[in-house]
Design a protein around this nucleic acid. Structure first.
Lengths: 337, 337
DNA sequence: AAAGTTCTTGTAAACGATTTCATTCTTTGT
DNA sequence: ACAAAGAATGAAATCGTTTACAAGAACTTT
């Protein structure tokens, strides 16, 4: 009896109706008469029928899944966004396929592949360093960028990156710092550039000297934060405050300088960006800029679903508010000197 | 011309062959004559044809995706495993669907849903607290457990949890500690129980007193580590060494006690479990037990693919080796007293 | 009571691949 | 030179749905 899985045919037979009626009962119950509806639903329960998504997708000319392209699946920053995406995609009956752009050889090629393969009803891009060329493809599915965005008028969900940098600089200035540096993300990345721009503008706007040798390049990773620490320790003329383009770098930096005997925030103040979960548990707890990552994921998914349903290829962009979180890693500059 | 996406019919027409030949050229090139093969491949390139995965899957009675069930997608511990899974699933042309068991109302129901819905060719379970009842379903797809495992003889990939605990205890004992405590994961979780058992056995085997009030319950999270710190700080008679069932808890604990002015490892030694990326960047760098998480993901995916291809529902289990990583968070016990 | 409407339902044609089976064309062995 | 075996191809069925269209039934409306 339960040998084979029931098809819509079996249900139709059991209920004494046509397959069309079964299908209608399940998708638009309102158009079928109450009596038949009940008969069908009974038959469904009886046979344990589940619609075959593959067949349904084929007929409806959709795939039922959206692909998320991200630079590194193992990065906790992204997993939070994934959680947000999943929370709206799953209820909407869309599967979420995850593809790691770093794992393969050529990220741009991977993007092109997914744009042309017709394997997804939509794409979410979390990697801002992808080249937008492939987006010219005519029949491509809708695409939404989250966090990072590219030149074209691609719908995106982003945060006020520049303002975040300005908040950090403002905080340092107010505490009395005059020697402020910055550790950036990888050059070319939109987030990096945006935050760097915000940093520069804020520095001139508060009237502080902008020293290029106090702008260190990282790549958002903890390792690159630790590397920045070695550079900072080796400087003869050090900034007393550092703004990091990511919390991860701040964490790597903090651990490294602490091991070198530096006390934060007594000898050096630092501020991160993102508010990843761990930083509140550090000692000192990290002052940072909060990005509501789950929220970003949710909005991106909503935008994408809207585009998929309306069949548009463009859409609005959304800017999500950030928040300055004052903790204990930034204090007044050292008095000596 | 490029208006609509090309189907296999278009390719067949362009190459002057039947659709059957096109299909064969693409799946089993060896059975078609060299000349025709070339003609078909040219036609493919010309039309920009991509096989429609949905149609292919329907015909082949498969779904082309495996579902990964995990307790919390935002947990960095799991994302590393996901990366491992993806690295073998993607090349094998399987999509990886991720489902969060914590986000919905009833985890067990979610598992049952995926087991019966026929939406996946296989399942990977990363949540050991799921009840195995649903696995009785007759036509269910193959299932592999990673990290955690359940009573039944389900194929699984796991690590030597008990031995990990023993390594930590051994290390403490060798350093001269006599008062050793343990912070566990949530009760009922297989990992928790296994490590706790290992801890207990190791304690008696090195001949140290096993004090139940020095066994604190956590839930693997940083917050629960911080909570454990408050308990430890409030104790009149404290253990001088603590073994944590997860790095996350160790991190939460470390930050909390450091803020209370405790020096690790001078006043207290700690050892974690997992070796998550961040712990090497802390100050002090955390001594811990490394689980090769990417490796676990890879093996689980390999096992699952094998089961899918051979059509078996059982398979071998695999035990992955762990490694003790000595860093700076464990030292000799304080001399005072 | 005839002519329109409005509701329900069924018939059958897609959707785009894969694969069985039969057919034609080559080889090969004797 | 002829039968048998092998290789390459095509015709058509099939996977399990959804949905355009048609048709019958049940009501209105005049």
């Amino acid at each position: 009896m339960d040998r084979k899985i029931a098809t819509i045919q079996d249900v139709a037979k059991a209920a004494g109706v046509s397959t069309a009626t079964v299908s209608r009962t399940l998708s638009k119950p309102s158009v079928v008469a109450a009596a038949t509806r009940e008969a069908v639903l009974n038959a469904v329960a009886e046979t344990g029928y589940r619609v075959n998504t593959t067949a349904s997708n084929l007929r409806r000319q959709r795939t039922g899944s959206v692909i998320v392209l991200l630079p590194n699946i193992a990065n906790p920053f992204f997993s939070q966004i994934l959680a947000g995406l999943a929370s709206v995609l799953t209820p909407a009956q869309y599967g979420m396929l995850i593809a790691d752009t770093q794992s393969g050889p050529d990220p741009d090629q991977l993007l092109a592949h997914y744009l042309t393969s017709g394997q997804a009803d939509g794409l979410v891009l979390l990697d801002g360093s992808l080249s937008p060329d492939a987006l010219e493809h005519p029949g491509r599915p809708p695409v939404v960028m989250a966090c990072e965005w590219m030149g074209r008028d691609l719908p995106s969900v982003r945060v006020e990156n520049g303002r975040g940098a300005a908040m950090a600089v403002g905080h340092f200035a107010q505490l009395g710092h005059r020697a402020i540096g910055h550790v950036t993300g990888p050059r070319g990345n939109v987030l990096t550039e945006e935050r760097l721009r915000g940093f520069r503008e804020a520095m001139v706007s508060v009237g502080l000297p902008l020293r290029e040798d106090w702008i260190l390049e990282g790549d958002f990773s903890m390792d690159s934060g630790a590397a920045a620490a070695r550079v900072w320790l080796a400087m003869k003329d050090r900034p007393t405050a550092l703004f990091f383009s990511s919390d991860e770098m701040a964490v790597g930096f903090l651990g490294a300088v602490q091991r070198a005997g530096i006390h934060v925030p007594r000898e050096l103040s630092i501020v991160g960006f993102d508010n990843i979960e761990i930083v509140q548990h550090l000692s000192p707890a990290l002052t940072t800029i909060r990005q509501p990552r789950t929220q970003i994921g949710i909005r991106a998914a909503e935008l994408l679903l809207d585009m998929i349903e309306t069949g548009t290829r463009t859409g609005p962009s959304d800017v999500i508010e950030i928040e300055f979180i004052r903790r204990d890693s930034a204090g007044p500059p050292p008095v000596s000197r």
